[in-house]
Amino acid sequence: MAKKENKKRCFVVGPIGKPDGEERIHSDWLLEGVILPVFAEHFRDFLVQRADKISKAGMINTQIIEELLDAELVIADITTLNPNCFYEIGIRHMVQKPIIHMHLAGQSIPFDIAPFRSIEFARIWPKDLERAKADLKTYIDEVLDPDYKVDNPVTVARGKVEFEKTATPAERAIQEELSELRNRVSALTSERNYWAHLDIKPSNMLRISREANSGRFYGGNITFEVRLVALRETSTRQLHALAEKYLPKYFEDYDLYRSSEADVGARVADTPRNRDAARLLENEAQSFEHPIHVVISPSP
């Protein structure tokens, strides 16, 4: 009798949902279109499992926790911000073992894990999956390196606790200076990225300057963002047509700041009417003639 091969394990965490539902379709795209092909080609010594694919007898919750505690690698899809997923991610963070975060393009990341890298992927064009597979392969190589140090909110918090126990007054002063410098760099980076989104050409520099001085951008009345993100079969042309059709219908004052193959972004005046309209658009968007996902977030 042939000896059973003892493979390392990769456990996939993410929204599963009902069969044929939007969450299941999304999860299957990620598992079958990205994750499994990467392991089949590059990491054949791994067995990849998702909770709904576990076939052995026993309580499913116990088996999930065992995988989170013991698997050599966990890949977590944080798209849809599913509470169960974040519970499972928290368990993995606590044991301080390798985990890779992934999310669908356009999804806002909760502030708790926003400082930690996450692979952003899309599934609109065939090249999107190829890019996602290449990124995932790079991340797996990194976390499986013997010199890799796990970095997540728990390790950071524990490191701070240990530092507080032993730090000298001089070391504490240095730490405070570094924290202040980090905050300043973060603020400068946010501002630079914001202006990078604008179409800065000589022909519109006067317009941008005039609008900035009148308060239409920083410090003015535009204080939240609305992004329209294409879902599945929605093409770039259809997405842009939807933006042109529905943004004026829902909002009384807005400025486009981003337009790409996968999404369209607008900065919207923070008025009671626009806040109500944003929530309405978020609820109605997937019933449009071409389904889209709406992301609403504060302006940086």
Rank of each mutant, 00 (worst) to 15 (best):
E88I: 03
G33H: 08
A243C: 07
I222P: 00
F217M: 07
D135F: 09
Y250L: 09
P300W: 07
E72G: 13
I78E: 10
L81V: 01
A167D: 03
V294T: 12
I89N: 01
L31P: 00
M205T: 11
T234N: 08
Y148C: 07
H197N: 10
I208F: 15
I113P: 08
F86G: 02
L136H: 11
D253H: 13
L247C: 03
G219H: 11
I65D: 02
G106Y: 10
S203I: 00
I99Q: 12
K165V: 02
D255H: 14
H101R: 06
K56N: 03
S27M: 11
K53D: 07
S297R: 14
T271Y: 05
I35N: 07
V161F: 11
S108G: 12
E284L: 12
A269T: 09
T166I: 02
P298N: 14
H290K: 13
I124C: 07
A196Y: 05
P126N: 13
K149F: 00
K56S: 09
L144P: 11
D70Q: 13
E244R: 12
G21S: 15
G14C: 04
E261W: 02
I35L: 09
Q63P: 02
E32F: 08
F116I: 12
F46L: 09
L198E: 06
F111M: 15
R232Q: 15
A71M: 05
A196G: 04
I78W: 09
F163Q: 00
Y254S: 06
P19W: 00
V38P: 10
D45N: 14
L231S: 09
N152G: 04
A187C: 01
L280A: 15
D20S: 12
K56L: 04
L144V: 08
G17T: 03
E244Q: 12
E142L: 13
W29I: 11
V268M: 08
I54S: 01
G265N: 02
K149N: 05
K245D: 08
E32G: 06
I140D: 06
L256T: 11
T271E: 06
A114C: 04
I109V: 15
P153F: 04
